[in-house]
């Protein structure tokens, strides 16, 4: 059942990208500055494109067409981590989420560049180049705001503390963890998490922010197996509403 391990990985990656893409597109028109408005919209478009490319690989492995998979499943059939489904909140919440998420994505795609699943390896090499800009954006703003006014620093600090346990949910181990590693498809969540933690700390250490990564954190698990907050279903309803009212809407 090699496919099953690959599918689990592809679904959670695709769902993460799809959901955070739709969340971040909510900043369109309301960003704190025009540049940030454009950045979040542009990154959202990238993410939705990435989810589509992943759904296409799933389609080749025997799953339904991308638009069916994206717009007709219910919340309990989604495998995104819970972090990405929360409403956009204040700008500092969305920024810290973007920082945690994109650093993880970057390392995930980097690890997948030589995946034994050829289509995924090819896609990873391409996407890694794009995510560099997302990471660049996140790091720049974390460093800017993390070294600015007392108020900005304290707001960011609040979001860091709130989001860190949610972010750990990105690395919820899969039931296929051993298999996916031994099949050479992916190096595994725990290796990914350790790369991610060093990259996170490298930036935090250049700011006035603090994060005790060895603290007693309680990771927000569940998303990978279809357990979600009350925020996901309304978002999915909204997404498929757009498709129903405008079947030609392009993503």
């Amino acid at each position: 059942m090699e496919n099953q391990a690959a599918k689990e990985l592809l679904y959670k990656m695709a769902d993460d990208a799809l959901i955070i893409g739709h969340r971040n597109s909510e900043w369109t028109g309301i960003g704190p500055m025009l540049e940030e408005d454009i950045s979040f919209s542009s990154m959202a478009q990238d993410k939705i494109g990435h989810s589509w490319a992943l759904f296409k690989i799933l389609n080749k492995l025997g799953e339904n067409e991308p638009d069916i998979v994206a717009f007709t499943r219910n919340a309990e059939q989604f495998h995104n981590c819970q972090m990405v489904e929360f409403p956009i909140g204040e700008y500092n919440f969305s920024l810290v989420r973007h920082f945690f998420f994109d650093l993880a994505e970057y390392h995930r795609y980097e690890m997948l560049e030589d995946s034994s699943l050829g289509d995924l390896a090819q896609l990873a090499r391409k996407i890694k180049g794009e995510i560099k800009y997302h990471v660049l954006h996140a790091k720049t703003w974390m460093k800017n705001l993390g070294n600015s006014t007392e108020e900005a620093v304290s707001r960011l600090q609040g979001s860091l503390n709130e989001l860190y346990p949610m972010a750990l949910g990105m690395f919820e181990p899969s039931p296929f963890e051993d298999q996916i590693v031994s099949d050479g498809i992916f190096g595994g969540e725990s290796e990914l998490m350790s790369k991610w933690r060093s990259s996170v700390m490298e930036i935090i250490d250049q700011t006035q922010l603090e994060l005790n990564i060895d603290g007693d954190w309680n990771p927000l698990y569940g998303g990978r197996s279809g357990v979600h907050t009350e925020h996901l279903q309304p978002l999915l309803d909204e997404m498929s509403e757009v498709v129903r009212t405008d079947p030609a809407a392009e993503w």
Binding site: E35, E36, I38, S39, S41, S42, M43, Q45, D46, E130, Y133, L136, H137
Partner: peptide, 13 residues
């Protein structure tokens, strides 16, 4: 540089 993202994915501002 104003932002690494522009009105289309290919551009920075």
């Amino acid at each position: 540089l104003q932002t690494p993202f522009g009105p289309t994915l290919c551009r920075s501002m």
